[in-house]
Every structure is written in structure tokens, then in C-alpha cells.
Write a protein that binds this DNA or RNA. Structure first.
Lengths: 200, 200
DNA sequence: GTTGCCTATGCAACTCGTTGCATAGGAGGA
DNA sequence: TCCTCCTATGCAACGAGTTGCATAGGCAAC
């Protein structure tokens, strides 16, 4: 459980209200740590009770008041402690991969549906990559003059960029494969029983 | 929620007991869909009650009896229906990325700890890639003679291979960056306040 | 010959995450 | 004018996932 820590990092980079955090989790830090506004509000209240963050009521004109949070001393200490703990292995959930393997046990029409779905994914990953590259241009125009915080943000961003590039290449590979199978498949042996279920 | 469907795919590829499924989820299909034995046993019971899978008690000598499950008609129908639904966007949890960004708000000693941690990750990803490549050699020796099921398994495996290659390259990038910062950092401005928290 | 690991299944308690809903004022368009 | 969307926060209920523990026989090593 590290939502607290993701929130702390975000608040250290920039204080903000629960609502603003929720928007950041949609746009920025949420690319590698997702959370809904419900989780964020609940965790913020707990963190405030524990003294990890300090809250300040801010009146606004023309819109509801907000509570602006910022990281407090105990929060920074907790973050430092967490940072020194080993990283637990991530739990992976790749639904598309399951569906691709599932398509072997369905009729050829399923392949057509799957191809459309993979194309949709390809589009969204392509748009995300474009957004990453645009953000890189905007936020890191001079790569020779970054401070430590920016260097660390940038190396994470590079990870996102390379991840999306890999994704696009793989989705193209998937599309090529699925189209080939959709063409060449008369009534193939897709339902072949009893193969090894212990494959890598 | 698609654990049921991942289990169905695994059972269609090869029937097995809850225990065997849990082992597969550690080794094979679990690379893109994780589950503990608790989840698997619970879900299997529910699936059996719903008629999605059929169970057969198998007595063994020298070890406890087991219940071997296989996918039943309603399960296949449910899988076909699920396959035609759009894939919901995956929730990402990249703890290491959060820690890298968190390191900006800690003292230089944190960088040293983080470097060791990244090296550890690099080792495990390297081992996983080797295992994927070995599994590819073992299970797909003749890439020109694959049936539909094998083609689909192989394209997913290629995704795993490319994912791990990208991971290794990025972790090397991270290590280079962290080492550079750990060297050159006197008392830098890592705590610079008020930067944009809405970066990509 | 006892210690520890492997197979095989399961209960109970807990935390985390999701979903639906509610409030409430202001902005902007049909 | 009404409808919808946006900001801003929150409650309540549910479902998913995690953790710790329990049983129980067999096998292998020390």
C-alpha cells in the first residue's frame, strides 16, 4: 500500500487540494499510480489525522472552498522510511493478453472483434505517446540544465515514453498476427486439447 | 474483474486442480494476471456453482486427493461473451517510479539505497527475460509450424520478451542517471519548491 | 528422528478499491 | 429557462485482494 506515498510525492512537488490531486492522478502521476477521488479524500483525511500533511482552508470566489494540503515533517519522515524499503513486485493485470489467448477457444468471428479492439488500443497508446513527447518538449526544453528533481522526473518520463513505444510496436505485431490468422483460418485446430498449460 | 476468465483460459489450455492453477499463476499465465491460491480456490468454487467449470475428484497415491477442474459449456459461453466486451484500461502501479521521484525530496543517502534497489530489479528482470527466451526455445522450436493456439500464445510471449527488454534498457538508463546524480550532488536544490505538479 | 519442504485445500479477518449517490453554487449554452 | 458541466467534498455499501493461520500426509536431508 503506497497511495499515501504517491500523494506525498505529489504534494512535495506541488501542494494542492484533494480535487487537484485527483486531477493530477488522472493526468500526471496517475500514469504510474492510479487513484480515484474517493481514495484520495479518504487517505488525505487519514494522513492529516496522522500529521503527515497539513491542511489549510482556502476560500475562493465563484467556486466552493477548498482544503489545500502540503506535506508535513512526519510525512517526509515516513516517505524517507518507505523509500528505503525494498520495492514489492508489482501485480500485473494485462487483460488484453488474456483475451488474445482466449481467442484460440472461440470461433473466427472473435478474431475480428479482437482486431478492432487492438486497433482501438493502438490509437490510445499512440495518443499517449504523443502527449508524453509534447510534455517533454514543454517541461524539459533544455535537457542540459536540469536540477535533481527534474532529472528524476525526466528519467521516469523517459520510461513512460519507451514503454509506449514498445507497446505500439507490440500492438502492431499483434495486429499483423491476428489478421494473418483471420485470413488463413478455415476451420483450424484452435480447440486442440491438452497442450502444456505451464508454458512461460 | 476477470480472474474467472483468466482461469477459464488456463483450464481450456490444460485442465487442472486449484493448486496446479496457483502454480501456473506463479509461472505462466501469472506473468500478466496474478492471483493467490486463496482467490483461485474461492473463484473456482463460485465457478463450479455457476456451472462454468466441472470438477472431478482424483485420488492420488502418496499425496492428497485433488479436484481437477475443466471448463464447461457455460464457462466457454461466458468467456466468448467477455471476449467481445471492450477491454477496460489497466490500472498501473509502478512503485519504483514513485520512489525515483520521491528521491528528490530526501538526502543523497537515499540515492545510494535506491541504486542498490534498481540493481536488484535489473537482475530479476534479466533473469525473467532469460526464462522467457528459454521457454520460447522449448515450446516453439519451429516457428513455421504453429497452430492458432500456439500462434496466439507466442505473440503474447513476444510481448513479454519485448517488455522485459524495454525494462532492462530503462533500468540501465535509471542507473546511469542515479549514479551521475549521486556523484555530482553536493548539496543540490533537490528540495526546490513549487514546481508544476501537473507534468506529464 | 526431527526438521523442514511439498502437495492440496480451506477459514476468518482485514484492508483496499470501486460504485452509486448526494450536496451545492457558478458558468455557459439552447 | 432549463439543462448540463465543472469545482469541491463526502457517505455508504459492496466486492476484490491480502494475510495469517490450520490441517494432514509424504518425502528427503541432516
Amino acid at each position: 500500500m503506497a497511495l499515501e506515498h504517491a500523494i506525498l510525492v505529489s504534494l512535495l512537488e506541488q501542494p494542492g487540494s484533494g480535487y487537484e490531486l485527483a486531477r493530477r492522478f488522472d493526468r500526471s502521476i496517475g500514469r504510474f499510480w492510479t487513484a480515484t477521488h474517493q481514495q484520495i479524500y479518504r487517505v488525505l483525511r487519514r494522513m492529516e489525522a496522522d500529521g503527515w500533511v497539513a491542511a489549510e482552508e482556502v476560500a475562493q470566489d465563484g467556486r466552493p472552498d477548498k482544503k489545500v494540503y502540503s506535506a508535513a515533517g512526519p510525512g517526509r519522515a515516513a516517505l524517507a522510511e518507505w523509500l528505503r524499503e525494498p520495492v514489492e513486485p508489482e501485480t500485473v493485470r494485462h487483460e488484453l493478453a488474456v483475451k488474445i489467448r482466449a481467442a484460440a477457444f472461440d470461433d473466427p468471428a472473435a478474431l475480428t472483434v479482437l482486431i478492432a479492439e487492438v486497433e482501438r488500443h493502438r490509437e490510445s497508446h499512440s495518443a499517449l505517446l504523443a502527449r508524453y513527447l509534447h510534455g517533454e518538449q514543454r517541461d524539459f526544453p533544455d535537457l542540459g540544465a536540469l536540477d535533481v528533481q527534474q532529472e528524476l522526473q525526466h528519467v521516469v518520463l523517459r520510461g513512460g515514453i519507451e514503454f509506449e513505444r514498445m507497446n505500439l510496436a507490440w500492438l502492431d505485431d499483434v495486429l499483423t498476427t491476428l489478421r494473418r490468422l483471420a485470413d488463413g483460418r478455415g476451420r483450424g485446430t484452435g480447440d486442440r486439447e491438452q497442450t502444456s498449460g505451464d508454458r512461460v
